[in-house]
Design a protein around this nucleic acid. Structure first.
Lengths: 116, 116
DNA sequence: GACAAGCACTTGACAAAACATAGTGCTATC
DNA sequence: GATAGCACTATGTTTTGTCAAGTGCTTGTC
């Protein structure tokens, strides 16, 4: 490697954060959960139809990172509750930033994206 | 429990924004460009070694969305400059939010590969 | 009591995205 | 005059995400 002796601490924090959040449905999941805890299938529908395999994987990763808590209410009639931890809820700022950016700068249905 | 029958129209602003930003190197690219315009290979190195095919695709997509501008300085000794548009620079808030979240909630413990 | 539907997932085959690597045509440096 | 660099594109492999179906159980409807 050439000159990769870059600043370690600061650069990596963002890098890592981006890597965590950049998974396919991750932000969607967080956003949905920000609106309240819910079950697996419910969550899948809420975020717009993520398939169970991916959702499961994401949720597991998120739980592993301490952003999401999985609470099994009952095993027999399967009932699970996913909710955000404090770290997860702290992503509200990120989601809000994305939301406001999207509303302002992304081509909306009202405006065609035929920008020159 | 709010009804999830979400019409595309309203939800789409965030949904779209997330979809745009969730691409593999997108945020990384924006973050690097936030620090100043640069060339193709330079950018690839700055974001940590994205392969050219992906970077090219991302850049093209970003340019198509009006977030990034590509300026060809010279064709023969190839020299290109990529920089952010106003919409792209507006992502600074998003990047900052992610950065501060990452620094606070994703510190050293999670810095390693956290696949359980 | 039988039967469809729903819950929370898992499995497995498949497609799409990202990957590494090599190569293009040129110049500037060694 | 060989090497390395620029901005990319082309090729083939690996990773990631997707669809469809299935599991064991309960609940609701008849």
């Amino acid at each position: 490697m050439p000159d990769r002796a870059a600043p370690p601490t600061e650069l990596c924090a963002v890098h890592d954060a981006i890597r965590v959040l950049q998974g396919k449905w991750t932000l969607q999941i967080v956003r949905a959960l920000l609106g309240g805890a819910c079950g697996f299938n419910e969550l899948a529908r809420a975020i717009g139809g993520c398939n169970p395999a991916t959702l499961s994987k994401r949720l597991e990763a998120l739980a592993g990172l301490g952003l999401v808590t999985k609470r099994i209410e009952s095993t027999m009639p399967p009932r699970t509750h996913y909710s955000l931890t404090r770290a997860g809820r702290a992503l509200e700022g990120v989601v809000a930033a994305i939301e406001s950016w999207g509303e302002r700068y992304l081509p909306k249905p009202a405006r065609r994206k035929t920008s020159a």
